[in-house]
Structure formats: C-alpha cells, structure tokens
Simulated assay, not measured.
Amino acid sequence: MKVSKVLATTSMAALALSLFGGVGANASMNKEMHHTDKSSMNMKSMHTKDKKKSMHMMKMDGLTMNMNSAMPKGLKKDTHAKFHVGEKVILKADHMKGMKNAKATVAGVYKTKLYKIDFKPTNGSKEVKNHKWVVASELSAKGALKAGKSVTVKADHMYGMKGAKGKIVSVNKGPAYTVNFKDKQTGMNIKNHKWLVQSELKAK
C-alpha cells in the first residue's frame, strides 16, 4: 500500500512538472516568436522608410532621376574655368531638395552653353517648367539654339525626358559643371550630377 502511494505521488509530481514546465516553455517560445516577429516588422518598416526616402531624393521636377544617365559625347573640357576638377565647393543651386548648401566636389568642367527649358515628358507627366540644365548636344532643333526655339530633348537625366518636345527658355554661356555631392536631406551620395552653371557654385 505504501509503495503504491509513493508511486502515485511521484507520478502526479512528474505530471505537474511536465504541465507547468510545458506552459513555461511555450510561454518562453511565444515570447521569443513575438520578439522575432516584432524585429522583422521593424526591419521591414525601416526598409520601407529607406526606400521611400531614396525615391523621394531621386525626384527632380516631379520626375524620377536616371542615376545611370550617360555623359554626352564630344564635349570639350574647360581647363580655364573658375572651378577645376577635384575642387571642393558649396552648391548654391536648388534643383532638388537636399542640394542647396551641400558640400560637393567638381567632377567635370566643359566648354558648352547650357539651356533652361520647358518640356512635356513622354511618360504623360505634367509639363516641366524652367528645367535646369541641358547642354547644346542634348537638344535637337532646326536652326540656332536660342530662347523661344522649339526643341526635341535628347538628354536622359530623368525618365520621360528623352524624346520630349519643348522650348528653350534661356541660354547660359557656360561652362557646364558636373558634381559629386552628399544630399543634405537623405544623406545619399550623388555622382556626376548634370548640370550646374558657374554661378551655382561657390568656393568652400
């Protein structure tokens, strides 16, 4: 009889330990899974924010910038410009958010006129007014390039730009600069941004 009671007591203790231990283990596992799910959600949220941030930075005149835009062929380097390749400058231009007052490095200087233009994007977006800048080799027109002249845009600085119809608003005698800079708003590094005129740069 005593042996039976001992065995029964031991069995009940083992069962209780198993039940409560299981609950504890499950609770611990659920807590860990909840923590993992929360971390995953936080990472996903951060990724989404970074993506939105990047896309916001890559907008110019309402169009998405083409970060792989090719340099026009045939441009002549300007070795007598006020700022030279490799020089550190401050940007006075505000072509996009995060650009004005950003620190930059001159990436290229070229002998060419620059043109401010209006154009209607080929992707159906609304007309872009006073876009700065395109150079002469990025425009096609009958006759001399001058203010008021109707043109076809050959530049691909932004998606929807190449092949667009537009007109010249004004002409700048140059030189034309490309720059590398860190966007002040997003912290992204922009390489070979096209184009800036000399008055849009100042010595650091």
Rank of each mutant, 00 (worst) to 15 (best):
A144V: 11
A155I: 01
K111V: 04
G21F: 09
K202E: 15
K111A: 06
F181H: 07
K5I: 05
M158R: 09
M46C: 03
S28E: 10
S137K: 15
G98L: 07
A104R: 02
L75G: 05
G108C: 05
V197C: 11
D50E: 14
N189I: 07
K52D: 14
N30L: 13
M57P: 00
K194W: 00
H84M: 10
L145T: 02
L139N: 05
K116N: 06
A14K: 08
K53Q: 11
V134P: 09
M29E: 13
A147H: 03
A16D: 01
D37F: 08
A107N: 11
F83H: 05
A141P: 10
K194F: 00
K49M: 09
A102I: 10
K82N: 03
K38L: 14
V106Y: 04
V135G: 02
Y115I: 01
K116M: 13
H84Y: 01
E127V: 11
D118C: 01
I168D: 01
G62C: 04
E32I: 15
V151Q: 05
M46F: 10
A93M: 12
A164L: 12
T112L: 08
S140N: 13
L15P: 01
K132S: 02
A104H: 03
P121I: 02
N192D: 12
I117Y: 00
K82R: 09
F83I: 03
